[in-house]
Each structure stands twice: as C-alpha cells, then as structure tokens.
Design a protein around this nucleic acid. Sequence first.
DNA 1: GCTTAGCACTCGCCAAGCAAGAGTGCTAAC
DNA 2: GTTAGCACTCTTGCTTGGCGAGTGCTAAGC
Lengths: 341, 341
Amino acid sequence: MELTERKLRILQAIVADFISSAEPVGSRTLSKKYGMGISPATIRNEMSDLEEQGYLTHPHTSAGRVPSDRAYRLYVDRLMDRFELSKDEKRSISEQLAGNILELDKTIEHAANILSEITNLTSFAITPKQDENRIKYINILPADESTVVIMIVAESGKVKNTVLKLRAPYHEDSLSLLSKAMTYNYKGKTISDILTMDIIRNFETDIEAMNRLAESIMPNFLKTLESMLDINLYLDGLTNIFSIPEYNNLEKAKLFLEMINQRKNFTEVLVNRDEGVIITIGAENKEDLMQDCSLITATYHINGKLVGKLGVIGPTRMKYDKVTSVIEYITDNLSRSFELP
Amino acid sequence: MELTERKLRILQAIVADFISSAEPVGSRTLSKKYGMGISPATIRNEMSDLEEQGYLTHPHTSAGRVPSDRAYRLYVDRLMDRFELSKDEKRSISEQLAGNILELDKTIEHAANILSEITNLTSFAITPKQDENRIKYINILPADESTVVIMIVAESGKVKNTVLKLRAPYHEDSLSLLSKAMTYNYKGKTISDILTMDIIRNFETDIEAMNRLAESIMPNFLKTLESMLDINLYLDGLTNIFSIPEYNNLEKAKLFLEMINQRKNFTEVLVNRDEGVIITIGAENKEDLMQDCSLITATYHINGKLVGKLGVIGPTRMKYDKVTSVIEYITDNLSRSFELP
DNA sequence: GCTTAGCACTCGCCAAGCAAGAGTGCTAAC
DNA sequence: GTTAGCACTCTTGCTTGGCGAGTGCTAAGC
C-alpha cells in the first residue's frame, strides 16, 4: 500500500500534535484542529491503514494514536519543515559562546549548557579524541629545588601539565637538555604512537645526569600523555527529564539517569557515532536502555581536524526540527571559533 | 523531665532500627527485637514521654514512632557507637586513593567516587579556595610564531595555563623578559591580591616590544588567574537517592537533584561550613531544600594549609556512625598524601 | 467507490466503599 | 511501676461502578 498525499498529511499532523501534547491523538481532534477538510470517520480509516503499515500504535482500544519509531523516522526524513532559529536566538547563542573561548574545554562544556537550556532536554558534549593529535613540544620546567613541571603542548593547542616531586635535586641544565631531547624525539608524533613506542631506551645518552632525570620523569610523562587521551564528557540538563511526561515515573527516570551516568559506556556510544548530524530514534539505537530514547548528535571540528561531538538525548517524542537546528548552529559556531586564525 | 537511662536505651534502639529499616518503629517490634526485658505497653509509655519531649514523632495515630531531628542530634552526640572500619575497607580505600595522585583534582574527584560507592549516598568534594594561594612563578612560553602559552604556577603546586594566539608575531626574548618581569612582580603575592592590584601600569617599561606584548597578554593572564580561583565541585552517586525510600517519589527526588545541581549555591553552602567533621541534621540546615536532609562534611588540607571539603548528603535517616568514619578516614588520607614530602 | 453519520463497544481512570493489619492509648489488674 | 486487654484510629490494598474518550463497524449519502 502506498502512502498517499493525504496519509502523509495526516501522519504529519499526528506526529506534530503528539510531539507538542504528549497525548495520543484522536480522530476528532485531528479533524477539528488541523482543518483537514475531512471527517473524523475518514481519518479513522486512514489511521487504521497507517497502523497496519507500522506508522502508528495504539496504547489501548479506546485511546488515540501514537506515532511509532518508523513514523518519527519518516517525519525526520521527509515530513518535517526546516526550522529556522530566530535572529535573537542565533545572536544569543553566538554571544554566549564567544564570551568564553579562553579554554577549549570550558567552551565545550558551556556549549552543552546552552544546548540543554534551549531544548529543555539532557545535553552532552565530548571533547575530541586525541589519538591523532601531534606533539608540538615538551618542556620540563623547574618549580623548586626538587619539583618540576612537565608540560606537553600538542599541535591542536591542547596543553597538559603535571607537577612532579623528584627524589633527588636536579640540575637546571639537565632539565632544558631533557626538554630539548624529548621534543626532538617526539615532535610531530601522535600521542598514541608515542605510547606504543619503546621510549625509555631512547634516552640512554652519554650524559649521566640526564639519564637519571629521564628515568624518574618518564613514568609521569607517560601517565600525563596517557591522560591527554582521555575524552571528557560534559552533561547538562539531567533534571530536565523530570518535566518530561514520558519520564513521569520513578523507575524510568532512574534508568535514564543511570544509563547516562555510566559515563564510560555513554561516551563510548557517542564516540562510535558517525560524523555530521546523526539522529537515531528509539529502537534504532542498539543499546537496551535507549530503546525509547532518541539521540541527536553533531560534530564540531578543531582546526578542521580533531572531531568532538555534541547533542541531546530525550524521549522519542521531541522537537526534532528545532533541536536539530540548534545543535547544528552550535556545532558550526564551535568549529568556526576553533579554526586557526 | 530528665532522660532516664531506660529512655535513652529505647531512643537508641528506635533510631538504630529506623535507620536500617526506614519503617516507623512499633512498641512490639522494639520489645521483641531488642530484648529490652520490658513489655510493649511499658515501652509505649516511655515513647509517649519521648514524643512529648520532642524526640519522636508520629506519622499518624496507628503508626510506629519515627525519630525527630532532635533525636538524631542526641544520637550523633551521645548515643552512637564509634564505628571502626574493617582492615579490608581501610586498605581498599587507601589503595584506591594512592593509585592516582598525579593530579590533585583527579584525586579529589576520585575520593568523592569512593565515598559514594561505600556509603550508597550522594557524595561531593570541593577543591580548596585559592585566594590565599601564592604565585610561585609565571612563564610565557612560545608555542608557534604567533601563539604563546601562559603558565602560572602557584606555591601549592597548582598549575594553570592558557594558549593564546597573538595578533602580531612576537620576539622570543620579549617572552622570557616578560616572564621574568611578571614573576618578579607577582611572586609571593596571593591570587586575590593580584586581581585587586592595578596591574597593566606596572609594565610600562622602556622596552617598547615588551610593553606591546604585555598589553596583549595581560587580559588573558588575568582571566586565567581569575579562573584559578574557581572552586571545583565534584558530585557522585546522584542516582543513589533513587534507592532510598525517603525519595521514592518523583517530586522529592526531583527537588533533591535540582538542589544539588544548582552547583553554585551548593558549593557556596559547602564553602561556608566550618572546618573539621560537621554534621547538620534536617532543620539544622538553613537552606529550605535541605530541611529533610542531613549533610556531613569534613575537611582535608593541602600542605597543611589550603582547605578543601568532602562529604555526603542524604536523608536524615542515614548511618551516621559509618558514614562519619568513612569521611574522616578519607579526608585524613587525602591530607596525608597532599603533604609536602 | 469514497465519505460520513450513528452507535455500540472497549478501555483507562477515578472516586467511593470495604476489609485487613498495624499500632496506639487507655484502663484496670498485678 | 509494670503489664495484659481491648477499643479505637489510620493506612493500605482491593473491588466496584460510573464517566469519558476514542475506536470500529455498518449503513446511508454523494
């Protein structure tokens, strides 16, 4: 059976109505509210067909119809109008993001805040994978007689440092020597390359003092380097789910929050998604706990290369048009502000 | 009316029973379970007295008794036994904390994780106030031809840096010169002192290049410095409240989570608490939303000076003995690992 | 042949009513 | 001062019946 023009129109109306009301949509409402020019009875017949085709479900005999995942998919792909953010909204987002570009991570966290604020959903953002980030230089700096700061600067501009107390005092010349040697060795290499290399050996030079220094610094250097690989997950708007009728039930709300609070798993899910704007609806998600959620993610870029992600998660009933627009707008904005000058 | 020995024993039994069962305690239960050697009727009389004195309440006529805030206070101050953690628990905590002392903030976050894990409550930790932290040195380092890294090292070992793209290329000598000048100027000063000083003017030297450099770096330097003052709040075990009978109701759970997610306010509350182990029970808390919560905090020290806090928040019905012991043990452990070597 | 009015039917929801259970408070006896 | 006994109170869980919303089917209309 083909989807006639009229069926599409009805389906669109049902989805739109259900998205905003969260109540099953009845034939009478539809006929009256959306001025379709056909009677409830006709609509009922059409609805019955749509149900047969898997676009609608029926919580129970005497309830209205509810869109299925399939209906949302159709809606997202073909039926929904492109949503244009208002000038004011756009300006507000840009301004808020521009206010805080000092620290990359903070900016990303802030973007997640804005997103949940606007959408009233739970938002998240992850920082880019750093595997492919290349070392620019390494600097070992004196702090006091037995303390040094290991500082690693990557090409993307990411900086990471650790304070390390040495067991023995050091000579300042050895520090700068070691910094140079390490930079020479590692410059241009990716973090993951370095971590798989056999490193300690590389510093068996003639200079005894430097060897000893390298030996005590290396373990911490490696740990620091490893921690540069960590992907940060920022979450916001967690409590927003409490105002969503779908989660008006302790057990569901609990499961939702617990799923998201398994940060490792959740990050993993996000990392594995494709680039660009990706929408997965209900059962399209592989994870058990996401079967009645929709997940929308988009990617932002740093220097056009490293890729982070940002998005929302909520019930399948969400304002796909607006949410998608907002996410797109924010990620575009992020990518632009992370471009090389 | 005085609290007789017997009344105290009864009260203790009621509190202990209610803490573990979350059910109002009846006279019969009490008489049987706690082998008091007196009949339910006698206990009822005593309970009636205790209620009059404000130690017990009565959800309704035909329910058992529930301890009031006052009873918990008495329990905490006089009745509860000191709880000794088992050797295994102690070892496990120490080991987990020792595994990750590379980064101070991570360690503190990790301590909060452990705490919520053990207590099954919502835990939190805040990093120390940095107002009194003194600058050790400032280093402006080259990253590439137009990018520099501003690095600030404080006496506590806290390091903070920002990557800054300059509008014009710089001369490397000016960088080290400026680093030295700034270090000379700020070394030994506290962060808040510097932020209230009128700084830009301090660098009006003869050297033109350095003046220009200082001018473009200063705003970012100040912002970075300011961000060093931020107190980080780590939360964990938020979803634990879902398994607590007191919060077995959407509205309450929601309010609880929203209260805690107002991170600014919540941090403020924590910052304002006294040092040492502090327990506030129910209405002893000033905040509206905490009227039926208890809050336990303890302080840890960095180098014996900077003070951070760690604790739990949960329903007034909590295992005060065990929770207090755990918190104390963890903060002691933290302070010890943050001591100067 | 599509559309529509009419009507019986189904189901969830809510309030009222009822019985069971838990625990108290009081009284009178020990 | 302590305790047994008993009436009383209040919550909880279950059942019942009415109401409203919405459907599905049928038959009539265009």
